[in-house]
Amino acid sequence: MLHHSDQLDLMYQALADASRRAMVERLALGPASVSELAEPLDMSLSAVVQHLQVLEASGLVHSEKVGRVRTCRIEPQALDIAERWISQRRAIWERRFDRLGQILANQANEQDKESKS
């Protein structure tokens, strides 16, 4: 089982490629076959399969083969890890900016008091 940080690394690595992001965006609309995913891309079917393997290793995509057709689906819960990580960092920075705002407001108040004296 992957740790959250390992899965997050794989997810960001997978999303770092424009072709893989395009596949994820397409899969957000619904399941698609490998051929359907390959159609708009300027690459071989084997290259598309390699990209899909990266997406599957990251947990973003799941595929299953029925007969001769491999159908891919997005795994939306996989994005929860990235969303939590981003939300935690956002909360940290918002607290820091709030604190900075308080410090600057206090300094401005002190300067106003000094200039009125």
Rank of each mutant, 00 (worst) to 15 (best):
V24E: 10
L27K: 10
A18P: 04
A78Y: 04
D80A: 05
R96K: 04
L100T: 01
S33Q: 13
G59I: 01
Q53D: 14
D42G: 06
M43V: 12
L41Y: 14
S87N: 01
L55I: 03
D98L: 04
V24P: 07
A57N: 11
A22F: 13
L100G: 00
A16W: 03
V61Y: 09
S33H: 12
V34Y: 07
H62D: 02
A14F: 07
L55G: 05
S5A: 08
S33M: 14
L52V: 06
I81F: 05
S19D: 15
Q77H: 08
P31K: 15
R70Y: 13
I103V: 14
S44T: 13
E110R: 14
Y12V: 06
S5Q: 07
R90K: 02
L37Y: 07
H4L: 04
G59E: 08
R70D: 10
A28V: 07
P40S: 13
L15M: 15
R20H: 05
V54L: 11
S46C: 04
E64A: 08
S58I: 00
W93I: 00
Q13M: 11
A14R: 05
A78E: 04
W85S: 09
A78N: 07
A28W: 13
L100Y: 02
S5K: 09
A18S: 05
V54Q: 14
R68G: 00
Q7M: 12
L37A: 07
A108V: 05
Q7C: 11
S44R: 11
E25T: 14
E110I: 02
E94G: 00
M43L: 12
A105W: 03
E75I: 04
E25R: 12
A16E: 14
A28Q: 13
A108G: 01
L104P: 00
E25I: 12
R70A: 03
V54E: 10
A28C: 14
V69R: 15
A57S: 12
I86F: 01
A16T: 01
R90P: 01
A105S: 10
M11R: 06
M11A: 15
R26A: 15
R26V: 05
N106G: 03
Y12E: 07
A38I: 01
D9C: 02
M23I: 12
H4D: 08
Q77G: 07
L8I: 04
A47W: 11
F97T: 09
L15R: 09
D80W: 06
G30P: 09
A78M: 08
V49D: 09
G30E: 13
R73W: 14
R90S: 00
Q111L: 12
